[in-house]
């Protein structure tokens, strides 16, 4: 079976609740987050969040809903097919 993997990187404010806001965009659709990593690199204004999800429908819509969050500055989504389990 082919799996579509999405690697989502976000620049967000370093503020309480940002991770919850982002996670809710996925959870309300019943979408499971495979991995998440957050850090605030020194000398940058933004925290960097990296998320991977699988087989989520309408990623374009998710992209816009993430960008709409008041604490989210920038969203980049890369996707590729994972055929390793075929």
């Amino acid at each position: 079976m082919t799996t579509m993997l999405y690697a989502i990187t976000l620049e967000v404010r370093d503020a309480p609740g940002v991770l919850v806001r982002v996670a809710q965009v996925f959870a309300r659709r019943g979408c499971n987050i495979s991995s998440v990593h957050v850090e605030h690199p020194a000398e940058t204004p933004w925290s960097h969040m990296s998320i991977t999800v699988q087989n989520v429908a309408r990623i374009d819509q998710i992209h816009h809903q993430l960008e709409k969050l008041v604490d989210v500055h920038r969203v980049t989504i890369n996707h590729h097919q994972d055929t390793s389990h075929e």
């Binding site: 309480p16 609740g17 919850v20 806001r21 809710q24 309300r28 008041v70 604490d71």
Partner: peptide, 14 residues
């Protein structure tokens, strides 16, 4: 309340 209301507001603050 901060977490309870997140999905039903444009934004919220504690």
């Amino acid at each position: 309340v901060f977490n309870m209301t997140m999905p039903v507001v444009k934004h919220n603050y504690m």
